[in-house]
Amino acid sequence: MRITPVAYDHPDAAKLTDLVQLEYAERYGGEGDVTPLAPGMFSPPSGLFLIAYDERDRPVATGGWRAMDENGENYRDGDAELKRMFVVREARRQGLSRRILALLEEDARQAGRLRMVLETGTKQPEAMALYESSGYTLTEKFGVYRHEPNSRCYAKPLR
């Protein structure tokens, strides 16, 4: 597998983002994650977006981080928020999420961010297991879904 940085609006990123939105809609109903995101949020040095390609150069996994600071939604100054972590079904259970997560954490650390935060939900137990086994702990809720009962927010210090 090859993991490479791409722009958030790259065609392969758009393809995988559409797939993850479909998965969110299947699990939770509705239209998927409605968090407002713009391509510039994932541009270095204040963010990064990665895609993993398989041996046939097909995009199979993605993840990104964006810089967030205190803004009234319970973010803290110095946060890096993990977004759009996703692996297509046929490429799961190969360690891709862990590899992408480690690369994103290191990049955010190098960019001076203080902690990595993420929001997931109770209908994604495999995501919660990944983050908990990677050193993330539950934290105060933040972001668009901070008032939703099925939302779970996690944080991990980067320093």
Rank of each mutant, 00 (worst) to 15 (best):
G47M: 04
E26C: 01
E105K: 11
G143R: 10
A61Y: 03
N150P: 04
R56V: 00
A13T: 07
V6T: 13
R152M: 06
Q110A: 12
P125Q: 07
T137V: 14
I3S: 09
F86H: 12
M85H: 08
A13C: 10
Q21L: 04
A111T: 02
L138N: 03
L130D: 12
E26A: 11
R76T: 07
R146M: 09
G29H: 05
A129L: 11
F42E: 04
V117A: 01
F142P: 05
Y53C: 03
M116D: 08
V6K: 15
Y8R: 15
M116P: 07
G32M: 09
P5K: 13
Y131T: 09
A129H: 11
S46H: 15
K156H: 08
R2H: 12
T120D: 00
I100P: 09
A102D: 13
E90R: 15
K15I: 03
F86M: 00
Y53R: 05
E73A: 04
R89P: 01
F86D: 00
Q110C: 04
P5E: 04
D9Q: 14
G47D: 01
M41L: 13
D9L: 11
R58M: 03
E140C: 00
D107V: 10
W65A: 05
R66L: 15
L37E: 14
Q94N: 13
G32T: 09
P59C: 04
V144C: 02
H147E: 15
A14V: 14
Q110Y: 00
R115H: 01
Q110N: 11
G95P: 06
D33R: 14
P39G: 01
Q21K: 06
